[in-house]
Every structure is written in C-alpha cells, then in structure tokens.
Simulated assay, not measured.
Amino acid sequence: MARGRTRTGRRDGGGTGRRIAVAVAVLAVVGGGVYGGTALKHHGDAARAEPAGAPYAQTTLVRRTDLSDSRVLPGTLGYGSALTIRGAGKGLITKLPAPGSTITRGKPLYWEDDQPVMVFYGGTPVFRTLDEAAVKAGASGTDVSVLADNLKALGYDIGPGPRGTQPATGAQKVPGTLLTSPLLDALKRWQRDTGQQQTGTLSVGQLVVLPGAVRVGAVKAQLGDPATAEVLSVTSRRKSVSVTVDAGDGDRIRQGDEVSIALPNSKEVPGKVASVGTAVQGGAVGESEPSGGDTSPSLQVTVVPVDSASVRNLDAASVRVTFTSQTRENVLTVPVGALLALQEGGYALQRPDGRLIPVETGLFARGQVEVSGAGVDEGERVVTAS
C-alpha cells in the first residue's frame, strides 16, 4: 500500500490555496506481480498556501526500461505422465527391460515365451489376426496401415498395395490399407531378421503400438507372470515440467511461449510451453477437498527445457517457472507510488516544485508503471510516496 503524501498547489495571482492529501492504494496480485494505483481523497479546509517542494518530499527518477508482467509458479520436473502397458498374449513373461531403457520402433519391449514383443508406432493396436486368410477376405483398415507404415519405415519393400478407403463387407467401407500378400511377405522377412518365428502372420499380442519412442518407467510384472497382466509403464524420453495454473489464466499462456525454469541449484534455464491443457480440474459447485486443499479451477501446462542437457542430471525435481504474458520495451516507468489520482479523473506526476505532469498509464508490473505524456521525460525527478 503506497503511503499518503501531500500535494500543494497555487491559485493564479497568488493569495490562498488548498492542501490536498492523496492516498494511492496498490493492489498486489500474488502470482503475477501486477500492481495498480487507485484513488484520491480530499481532506481539510482551505488554508494559506505554503512553498512547494517541501524538503522532506521523497523523489524518484523517471526511467526508460523494459517492463514485463510475469508470474512465478511451482512445477514438477520429470518425464511426464506414464502409460501402463498391459500384455495381450497367452503365454508367460520371460524377460523384462531395465527401468530407464529407451525403446524405439522395431525393438522388443518385453519377451513372452522367449519371443520378443516388438514396438511399432501408430494409433491403432493390432486387434485381429493378419494372415493369408485375411488377405483372401479383403481385410483392410488402420491396423493394416500401422503394419505397412512401420515395415516401410524399417526399410522393407511392402509392394504396391493400394491405400485409402477399401471396400469391406456389403456396402460398408473401412478407411485404411488393404492387406496384401506382398505386405505379409515383408512381415515374414522382418520376423526373420529380428529373431522371431517366421510365420508371415501377425497375431494379437505380438506387437505393442505406441505413439513414438518411449522410456521404460516402472517395471510392474515379474518373470513368469501371465502376459495379460500389467507389464510395465512407459513415459516420454524427454523431460518436461508440469505446472498447475488457474483456469482463468489459461488464455494468457500459449503453446510456444518462452519461459524461464529455476532449478533446485538456483540455476535458471530457458524453456518453452509445449502444451496447455483443456480439461479444467477442481472447482465443482458443492465439491469439497477432504484434505482442506485448494479446489479452485485449474489447468495443467507442460513446459520443456530448450536444451535437454541442462537437466541431464535430474530425473525428478521441484522447480519454479516464470511465465511472461506481456512485455513493453523501451518505455518510461516510475514507481506506482509516484502516481497521483486526480479528482477530475486520470493521473499525474508531481515535480519537486509542486507542478503536476498529466500522464497516461500503461502496464503495471513489479511495483512499476508505464507512463507517457507530452510533459514527461526520461531522467526527470518526481515526488513519490514509496
């Protein structure tokens, strides 16, 4: 809260004047560091004018600088949310990867009955048997597309099989790739090259389809467990920071925004907003938090370090993220306490001799305010209450 200060004016022609005490109230927004000045209150009766620029008046300089509206929020550094992998085979688990391992396209994720369960990239799991019988039936679909796309990406010739919307039974049409014999031949060659049984058939449970390369998180199964159990969890290979923000502030944060990440050793590294969640958590009417915690509506924002090497030695940590929603470059600024709210509306700055300079206000941030006007110049000294 800015301290009250006295402004003295003179009437034209001398004589009498009046003393006005002005209190400037500063509104502080706790996460954002945004401040504002408020109102004017008139006290006392008319009195004899006194010389302006009283010697006890505190002054400050009008400065030219960059002004940013930023907020600092706590975050958690890690590998992001984990995806649990559940087996779909009929055998037993005979080999498991080590936590922290990286698994890429065409590599085994775990072993069932001493046969590798491989990873393909895509969005559709293998949900049926793909074999010569399926070729004769004219099978097509997005699961076939996953098989074709991955074999081609691994360097195998899949033949000229048609793509696009293919006819299924009756008048129904299924989008995706048509299963062909050349595609199954490519599958058989890949099975041979990777130590699998060369069947030329793809069955449910032989592949795990993931969005991309992953890092093995927690291993949940033990050797000898049924392959239908929860086997392990996987995460992104890239470290990220998860930040909870007020839902009302979500529109001020955009994907690609630059941020600063403060690590536990106080080192700051640059980062970028990777995603802004759209699912609002908490804040339901009548909903109460059993632990007495905050239930205000919130969103999850994901931030990634620009240089992954900057967090190489940290697998998990509590960090602080600075978001900057506005930046005003090369503007004139004064402390908020230097503003006088005028009775007739608007704001002014006061010179030490008592004269007023009308100003327009811009961005309020970190106890400073952007000012502009015909009579305000860089380096000018003005009276301030703080």
Rank of each mutant, 00 (worst) to 15 (best):
K188M: 10
L342E: 08
D193T: 09
Y56I: 09
K90L: 13
T384Q: 10
Y35C: 06
F323M: 03
S181N: 11
S275I: 04
V273G: 00
R238D: 14
I158P: 02
A98N: 14
G375S: 13
V383C: 09
K272Q: 15
T327D: 04
G367W: 00
T177E: 01
G15Y: 11
H42L: 13
G282Y: 13
Y56V: 12
D157A: 12
A218V: 04
G277W: 03
A133H: 14
P182C: 05
F120A: 07
G362R: 04
S318P: 05
E344R: 07
R189I: 01
Q281S: 11
M1T: 07
M1H: 08
K41N: 12
D69C: 08
V117W: 05
I85V: 15
A153Y: 01
A2M: 10
N150K: 01
S288W: 13
E287F: 14
G159T: 03
V135K: 06
V319L: 04
R312K: 14
G32N: 12
A137I: 12
T384I: 09
P55D: 15
D257A: 05
V219C: 09
R320P: 02
V334I: 11
V311F: 06
G33L: 09
A186H: 05
A221S: 10
Q300T: 15
G205M: 02
A274K: 15
V331A: 11
G122I: 00
P264T: 07
G286Q: 11
V269H: 10
P97T: 11
L207E: 01
V269W: 09
S275P: 08
S140C: 15
R11S: 14
P162T: 12
L96G: 04
V276N: 05
P270T: 13
Y347I: 01
S288C: 00
A139H: 12
G53S: 11
L96P: 01
V144T: 09
Q206F: 02
G292T: 14
Q368N: 12
L147D: 03
S266C: 01
T104P: 02
G155Q: 09
V234Q: 06
P162W: 13
T177Y: 07
K239M: 04
G217D: 04
G31C: 03
Q368K: 10
R163K: 00
T244I: 04
I103K: 02
A338G: 14
L340M: 10
I253D: 03
V174S: 05
L147Q: 05
R105T: 00
A213F: 02
A274E: 15
S386C: 02
K152C: 00
G217V: 06
T169C: 00
V301A: 08
A247G: 11
